[in-house]
């Protein structure tokens, strides 16, 4: 009889203990990560950040690409397609140009007057044939004559942070396609790239690029418009 009653006690007691455990879990926050709708990984428990060097989607900084085709050659699955055009001797897409970076972040593209293109801090720089500018309205207002085809502006040496020379183009890429549906993420192409312009993204965008159509996974990195003379503004805007 003693055992019988003790059995009942134990039965009821253990059930109640179990129920206490489960009801505590009931009021715990949930750990489910509503993945496509929630990106704030840090707020969730037990979710790691994407590590550095993760092999995500391939990306090519086409401005730095020299079209050497090493990546195309080394790719084991032939997912990279590159075709380039070399202009005949003597032809070029544009003349040599200068890009003046001002200290307030403005970039102005044109040709620096005078033969000597060395810049000293005391000198003032006069740009002619300005084709593109990116920056504050204040600088844009200084361009004169405003609205004309050929514009000129003068900057003092204090304003200028650096001047870059953009060489004339004699070779450009017609096509730089990477088919990510074929890519096996071996990373060989990024290792052979001499200019380090072909990289694998180790950020969230390098992971989340699923598409509904396989043809959407072919990414084009060639920027034809970059090489057309009038379109330099687009290049600046795209950056």
């Amino acid at each position: 009889m003693d055992k019988y009653i003790r059995n009942i006690y134990r039965g009821v007691y253990t059930v109640l203990v179990g129920m206490r455990v489960t009801i505590r879990q009931f009021f715990e926050p949930n750990v489910t990560h509503q993945y496509p709708y929630e990106h704030d990984y840090e707020k969730k428990r037990n979710v790691r950040e994407i590590p550095k060097g993760y092999r995500g989607q391939l990306y090519n900084r086409i401005e730095d690409c020299i079209g050497c085709k090493k990546c195309e050659m080394i790719c084991p699955v032939d997912c990279i397609t590159i075709t380039g055009t070399k202009l005949p001797r003597g032809e070029q897409l544009w003349d040599s140009m200068n890009v003046v970076h001002l200290k307030d972040g403005t970039e102005v593209i044109g040709i620096i007057e005078g033969d000597d293109k060395k810049i000293k801090s005391e000198d003032s720089i006069t740009l002619t044939n300005i084709t593109s500018r990116l920056g504050s309205q204040e600088v844009i207002d200084r361009l004169e004559p405003s609205g004309a085809e050929s514009r000129t502006a003068t900057f003092s040496g204090d304003e200028v942070s650096r001047v870059v020379t953009r060489n004339p183009v004699v070779f450009y890429l017609d096509q730089f396609d990477i088919d990510m549906s074929l890519c096996m993420y071996c990373g060989l192409c990024t290792e052979v790239c001499p200019t380090e312009c072909l990289v694998m993204k180790d950020s969230l965008e390098g992971i989340e690029y699923s598409k509904f159509d396989r043809s959407d996974l072919i990414f084009n990195f060639d920027k034809q418009e970059m090489y057309s003379k009038g379109g330099t503004e687009d290049v600046e805007a795209a950056d």
């Binding site: 489960t22 879990q25 715990e28 926050p29 949930n30 750990v31 489910t32 509503q34």
Partner: peptide, 11 residues
Amino acid sequence: SARFQNRTGPM
């Protein structure tokens, strides 16, 4: 049941 297992259930 989802709540008891710290899940969200059908969403």
